[in-house]
Simulated assay, not measured.
Amino acid sequence: MNKKERRKYPSLRSFTWSEDPEKSEGQLLVENTVQEWYDAKHATSSIFEIEFINSLDIKQCPFCESNDFTKYGHKKDGTQRYICKECGKRFTALTNTIFDSKKIPISEWIEYLLHLFEFHSINSTAYDNRNSPTTGKYWLIKTFEVLKGISRNKIGVGVACNETKSIFIVTGTSKPSRKSTKETYSQHIARGSVLVHDDEHSHSILIEELELESIVYPTAETKELSDKDNPLYPVNNLHLLLKQFIRNHGAYDREHLQDWLNLFWFIMNEPKDKYDKVLKFIEMAVLSPKKVRYRDAMSSKHSK
């Protein structure tokens, strides 16, 4: 059966037994259940979502980056519109973001992000959120775009942390060298601070150039210690969690390794509360001019 011959089925939304108000209990059960199905599969933006979108502090036109714009009425759902006095184009707070031209409300992302931040696989995350696997992959690429900031196409991972933050950076080499160590960490360590490490030879470049105080715990001395007694446990634990994260996403490829590390970094750093983290991501996304088109995202180059 080709496209022209396909049978058109009536929408669940239009289903009703009759206009007669006197319906049987069975008819009411079926009719109300079908309506619940439709509402669940075709959610609309809530008043809280519209209020959230309209509360965003728009700084510039997403087309020409001019800050000379003004309010220009509302869309049917209540979303505030703006018009740029410089280029004349109209826009909303979501224009040219990952939520641009959205067919489903932003709130649908909340469950997806919660599962993603809990180390669920992409397939299970999409299934739990009642999305197709391709939608799960498309949303993952959108997530990568929001968190993007470091170059790709390298190998090796640098990990470091202090009491509150951590970093995960593709280093450019599988074996640490003075050059790669300097490029990886020097912009993230304050001059004159304390470096606690395992006496890796390449760390010397950081100690020399940043005038660091060096506290060394050789691996030979720490490998037999319990976690609570091991001074290098915080960074060792990050390595273990990163390995678990990568195992749960076995379909990743090296070309996009930094994207995965960016996501893992976001999961492991502040805010610690997962709901605060979801809100932080959504705020980053709507305030970031990173529109991702489905056709471009799901091309063979990006959907591996």
Rank of each mutant, 00 (worst) to 15 (best):
127 Y>V: 05
92 T>F: 06
189 I>P: 07
81 R>I: 08
83 I>A: 06
113 L>Q: 00
200 E>I: 11
138 Y>I: 09
12 L>F: 09
221 E>Y: 01
260 W>M: 13
159 V>S: 00
10 P>D: 02
292 V>G: 00
132 S>N: 12
182 K>I: 10
273 D>M: 07
266 F>W: 11
147 L>S: 06
259 D>V: 03
227 D>W: 04
19 E>C: 09
249 H>I: 09
68 D>A: 13
243 K>W: 00
88 G>T: 09
287 L>P: 01
127 Y>A: 14
257 L>V: 07
52 F>N: 02
72 Y>R: 08
136 G>P: 08
203 H>S: 15
259 D>G: 09
125 T>V: 11
196 V>A: 09
170 V>C: 06
60 Q>Y: 10
247 R>Y: 12
224 E>K: 00
113 L>K: 00
223 K>D: 00
84 C>Y: 03
244 Q>L: 11
247 R>P: 05
271 P>H: 06
174 S>I: 06
32 N>A: 12
65 E>C: 12
69 F>A: 06
114 L>K: 13
43 A>M: 10
109 W>F: 07
228 K>M: 01
272 K>H: 09
154 K>P: 05
155 I>S: 15
228 K>Y: 02
160 A>M: 11
68 D>E: 15
81 R>L: 14
233 Y>C: 11
29 L>G: 04
273 D>K: 12
267 I>Q: 11
138 Y>Q: 13
145 E>L: 05
190 A>D: 14
195 L>I: 13
103 K>Y: 02
13 R>Y: 10
208 E>S: 13
79 T>F: 01
178 R>Q: 12
100 D>R: 04
6 R>M: 15
9 Y>C: 10
4 K>V: 14
249 H>M: 12
234 P>A: 10
70 T>I: 14
283 E>P: 02
216 V>P: 01
84 C>S: 12
12 L>I: 10
149 G>H: 05
237 N>P: 08
127 Y>Q: 13
120 H>E: 09
117 F>M: 09
101 S>I: 03
38 Y>W: 14
204 S>W: 01
84 C>G: 14
73 G>N: 01
112 Y>I: 04
100 D>L: 01
256 H>P: 03
169 I>T: 09
173 T>V: 10
86 E>P: 02
293 R>C: 07
259 D>E: 12
269 N>V: 12
164 T>D: 13
173 T>L: 02
142 K>D: 05
172 G>M: 00
290 K>W: 03
60 Q>I: 06
65 E>W: 10
